[in-house]
């Protein structure tokens, strides 16, 4: 474990907690893409299948349990408890356009052609693009609540910090996973446009408004 990865995991944790706080305090899921949350849930389910078979450390297990349960809880809150506030008309990104290419790519490009490895690879590819429905929804509504933009900033930062972690592990531990690194770079690049808006607007105290 290194500082980049620890801070990255804490950013990821903060993002998920921020999202749950926003939903619970505002009693609303307005502005949130249920599809992105479904995709994140799928990412955790397909990646943490080894939760019970492969023990890494107490930290690793606790975080996996938290990520799994919180993502499933978020989907539940969006599609059942606060369904009335879910803005389905603006959450129209076609998930199959992400699921099918990620599944095909995971079958073709992986480290080992075994079910667990292909599912892990699928989860890595899917995580890289899972935020697209949410970013697409913001581009359609033209704005995002401030706490939602904090959520996105924390979520985007987590994988950016993981890239630093991979650089560190490459130079100091001679560990390197090209699939995770390439997907992580794609994932972080997708946030760049949002990062620009966040830093120039939200940090100036303005609401996140996309140029019409």
């Amino acid at each position: 474990m290194n500082a980049f990865r620890l801070v990255g995991d804490l950013c990821h944790l903060a993002a998920i907690v921020l999202l749950l706080l926003k939903i619970w305090k505002s009693r609303s899921v307005a502005g949130l893409s249920g599809k992105s949350q479904i995709l994140f849930g799928l990412v955790f389910v397909t990646r943490y299948l080894d939760l019970v078979t492969n023990f890494v450390s107490p930290y690793n297990t606790i975080m996996k349990v938290f990520f799994l349960s919180s993502s499933i809880a978020t989907v539940y809150l969006i599609y059942t408890k606060f369904k009335a506030t879910y803005d389905g008309n603006h959450d129209t990104f076609r998930m199959e356009f992400l699921l099918i290419p990620c599944a095909l790519l995971a079958i073709v490009v992986n480290h080992e052609f075994s079910p667990m490895e292909i599912l892990w690879t699928f989860s890595i590819y899917l995580e890289a693009v899972a935020i697209l429905p949410q970013l697409f929804m913001i581009s359609k509504t033209g704005e995002a609540e401030t706490i939602t933009s904090h959520y996105l900033f924390a979520l985007g930062s987590y994988r950016g910090l993981y890239i630093m972690n991979w650089l560190y592990r490459y130079y100091y531990e001679n560990n390197f996973d090209v699939i995770a690194v390439v997907a992580g770079i794609v994932q972080t690049v997708l946030y760049c446009d949002f990062f620009y808006l966040y830093i120039t607007k939200v940090l100036q105290g303005k609401k996140l408004q996309l140029p019409a």
């Binding site: 492969n54 996996k64 531990e173 995770a180």
Partner: peptide, 10 residues
């Protein structure tokens, strides 16, 4: 391959 060693990540 050495990539296995990053499987301790979340």
């Amino acid at each position: 391959s050495d990539c296995k060693k990053t499987k301790d990540e979340l």
